[in-house]
Design a protein around this nucleic acid. Structure first.
Lengths: 246, 246
DNA sequence: ATTGAATGTGTATTAATTACATGAATTTTC
DNA sequence: GAAAATTCATGTAATTAATACACATTCAAT
């Protein structure tokens, strides 16, 4: 998953043995990943939660997470959680932050690395059959297990910032979307109201939207045009951005 | 260091015991922190390195890092490294990213969390007596131990981005600085040339610079005014920032 | 006193952001 | 099927921010 810098791969065996011995002397601790999985539905930003499997937290909601295996990279562990829980593979996923409070887990010292994931709540692969799972409004979280409220807050802040600088939002929408849907998404995530005309102007001037020529269906008013995001063109443009401002 | 959400602190003892048993069944692994300590000197961005203590990496430079203790938070471990190595306490320090490649350490699986630290290279508390330490130009790194080149690159990218949105840069300068020094800092970090008049206009319009009334000394040309950054005023302003752009 | 080098400031141009109003397409209502 | 209601689609003027650019001032060195 991560590009790896081979670490002294061809060094003499006794040197490696020394290093191995050193590492064996290091204190060890359990490491987990927790996925903050965002979805967008009914014009609200949602997060996917599961009932805590700990009796101490009975009834409380928690994030989807798991231990990191001895020979597993963090990204892979997070993808594994996503795959096992949602059945989805090509999902947006980024590491956000490690949390290490000593008392964050009632069972003892557990360090966790939080990941932010974005997916389309209507995606056909997404089979949330487990009735212990549910999508909850991001702004009505309370009484969560562990430090998961804090973790979600961190990921939500991260998302609010990131979505303004990178085209992440499209991961939350269907492949084809109307401009109104896109604006609703931004308004929900940023918790602001935006002027429709200026919003459209902004996105059109970026010139990354492809007009599919299709129209919305099953909508009880004049249907809007459907667009796709031109990821290919975006990748090529890669703007260099200087704008000191604080 | 981190605000901690007490985890089911008052739950029944047998429930805690269950949780403890669960955590004991988790795989464990060594965890370290690595500090990317930036300094600014001779109009160049520098990073503080130390000779690797591993024989496998004999002669190569590495970051300042250490193991995370069983009952130590990540932030505290990073601060400890800073304190022990530089003698400095009130230092800018932020977690950046965890690195977990399986082969990143020749002695076996070691996950590390990278921190970005900024300090004034001339600070009187900074005692780099150890001649195994040295400040190296960020843009002339090669042949580093572990994946430390990759870690520095990540922190450097993080810094380039962050410094445009938050007043971090001042941590690299003396308390009182000239506008020219400030501009040199930005130019060095962002690797661009900026127009002097527009740069000044920009900073003055933010209105966070305090004119100390003092002038530069020991400079063989017309001395510039010395300014301080008004952190207090900045903290109060906390602009809310909406600017979709990518 | 003259030269050199860096500081300090202002203005005109361009680009980006904001505020704001009307006509067109489609569904619902009567 | 005509009228009402709703949402889509678009343009322009005013403001604000970013950029490009030139000259007078201060101090040090000679």
């Amino acid at each position: 998953m991560k590009t790896s810098t081979p670490a002294a791969g061809s060094a003499a065996p006794h040197l490696i043995a020394d290093a191995v011995e050193l590492v064996h002397s290091y204190p060890q601790m359990p490491l987990t990943v927790d996925c903050v999985i965002f979805g967008f539905d009914e014009n609200k930003l949602k997060v996917l939660l599961i009932r805590s499997d700990l009796e101490v937290y009975k009834g409380k909601w928690s994030l989807l997470g798991d231990i990191v295996k001895q020979t597993e990279e963090l990204d892979d562990a997070a993808y594994r959680v996503l795959r096992e829980r949602t059945g989805m593979t090509d999902v947006y996923l980024k590491q956000v932050q490690a949390f290490s409070s000593l008392n964050r887990h009632p069972g003892g010292r557990v360090v966790t690395v939080a990941y932010c994931s974005l997916l389309n709540i209507r995606h056909h692969e997404l089979q949330i059959t487990d009735n212990e799972l549910h999508w909850q409004n991001v702004r009505s979280l309370k009484d969560m297990a562990f430090d998961h409220k804090e973790i979600i807050d961190a990921c939500y802040n991260w998302l609010q910032k990131r979505i303004q600088e990178h085209p992440l939002g499209f991961n939350l929408l269907p492949e084809k979307f109307s401009l109104r849907e896109l604006q609703n998404l931004y308004e929900a995530i940023l918790n602001v109201e935006l002027d429709r005309r200026n919003f459209r102007k902004k996105f059109f001037s970026m010139d990354f939207l492809i007009d599919t020529g299709e129209l919305e269906e099953d909508v009880n008013h004049r249907p809007g045009k459907l667009y796709q995001f031109n990821f290919e063109k975006y990748e090529k443009s890669k703007r260099k951005w200087i704008g000191i401002d604080f």
